Amino acid sequence: MGMVEKIRILLVKRGNISEAELARRLGMSTTNLYNRMKRDNFTDKDLQKIANVLGCTFEGTFKLTDTGEEI
């Protein structure tokens, strides 16, 4: 499972957050986020920021802090 697929699963689990809303929370343009998702091109720093805004931790996988589920 690629990182983009994991991010999309997290967006659904966190209340059907749109990619545009995720971009807003990350402080980046929607176009920039869409391009990164299209190429599945994220740095570890990017993934840490995504984890922070979605209320989970990132350790190569995402782990929901409230349920402990790993994605």
Rank of each mutant, 00 (worst) to 15 (best):
L26P: 03
K45W: 05
T30W: 00
L11A: 11
E19S: 08
R8D: 10
K45Y: 11
E59M: 08
K6V: 05
A51M: 08
G15Q: 12
K49P: 01
R36W: 00
T57N: 09
R39N: 13
R39A: 11
F62N: 00
Q48E: 15
L64F: 10
N16A: 13
T57C: 13
N32G: 09
G27K: 02
L33C: 05
R36H: 01
G15S: 10
N52I: 04
T57P: 01
D40I: 08
G60L: 09
R24T: 10
G2A: 13
K38E: 08
E19G: 04
L33S: 02
L10E: 09
L47N: 03
T30V: 11
T61N: 13
T65E: 15
A23W: 02
M1E: 09
F58R: 06
N16M: 09
N35K: 12
R25F: 01
R39M: 07
K13Y: 10
D44Q: 09
C56W: 01
E21I: 06
N52R: 13
S29I: 02
E70I: 12
L22I: 04
M28T: 10
L54C: 07
M1T: 11
L22F: 05
T65I: 14
K13R: 15
G27F: 04
F42R: 06
K13C: 10
T31E: 12
L10D: 02
